[in-house]
């Protein structure tokens, strides 16, 4: 059991008496896009919050050979950054301030400015909205800002929780294009989605999460052909 960039084994998470994740085993290699699909309540967001260090867990989460701490600010320091469901921007603050918050641990002022420019190259609209209060952005723009904010910490692994939620299909498509671009920069991406079709299209491998356990896993292209998946998630 070694050699994978990120490795989760025997992961259990409890909310009081509720056993939300029941022994999850997963892995991701460097620069992969791995997706997790599942219905509401399957434990997708729980998985993300746990990996980000917010929820206490039993089992092991290893990243780049070392166990991942269960304290969010230390997890970020290790290079794991979460874009949570519904974005959770600092809505009372400007677009620029949100980006600065993303880089709050860093002191390299010039590099921070350069990374901001990189985000603008990815999402040009953000540059026009720089001093606008982030809560007044449209849903798609907010998601772009949330991803940019996470990228500002220079993560080695990016966790995306339902990035397409509430977005128009065209916006979702454009967003998924940029996710491929981000992977091109060597970032490992783990995304959970209800939007199974788009997700499996963009990801290399896929896990199907059902009631807190992994029901199926494999290459996305193969999972997409599985009749059970087609029936449950792709509307066949």
């Amino acid at each position: 059991m070694s050699g994978h960039y990120a490795e989760i084994s025997g992961l259990h998470v409890y909310y009081g008496n509720i056993h939300a994740l029941r022994g999850i085993d997963m892995y991701a290699d460097k620069g992969e896009i791995v997706s997790v699909v599942g219905v509401n309540g399957a434990g997708k967001s729980t998985l993300m919050w746990t990996l980000a260090g917010v929820l206490p867990y039993k089992g092991s989460i290893k990243f780049d050979g070392l166990p991942l701490p269960a304290r969010p600010h230390e997890t970020v320091a290790r290079g794991v950054s979460l874009v949570p469901e519904r974005r959770r921007l600092f809505t009372a603050m400007s677009v620029r301030e949100n980006l600065i918050m993303g880089a709050i641990r860093r002191n390299d002022r010039d590099e921070i400015e350069r990374d901001m420019e990189r985000c603008f190259a990815l999402y040009p609209v953000l540059k026009e909205r720089l001093s606008q209060r982030s809560g007044t952005l449209s849903g798609g723009e907010q998601q772009m800002l949330a991803i940019s904010r996470a990228l500002m910490s220079r993560p080695r692994a990016l966790l995306l929780d339902e990035p397409s939620l509430g977005l128009a299909p065209k916006v979702t498509e454009a967003l998924f294009d940029t996710i491929s671009q981000i992977r091109g920069d060597g970032v490992t991406v783990l995304m959970v989605e209800q939007n199974a079709y788009e997700t499996m299209n963009v990801s290399d491998r896929c896990y199907v999460l059902q009631a807190g356990t992994i029901a199926m896993s494999g290459n996305s292209s193969e999972i997409m052909k599985d009749p059970r998946v087609r029936k449950a998630y792709l509307g066949d």
Partner: peptide, 18 residues
């Protein structure tokens, strides 16, 4: 800025590395 971010959303503030 970090204090204002914390006022806005403390969990997210810690997820930024604070």
């Amino acid at each position: 800025i970090a204090i204002r971010a914390g006022v806005n959303d403390m969990t997210m503030c810690s997820l930024m590395g604070v």
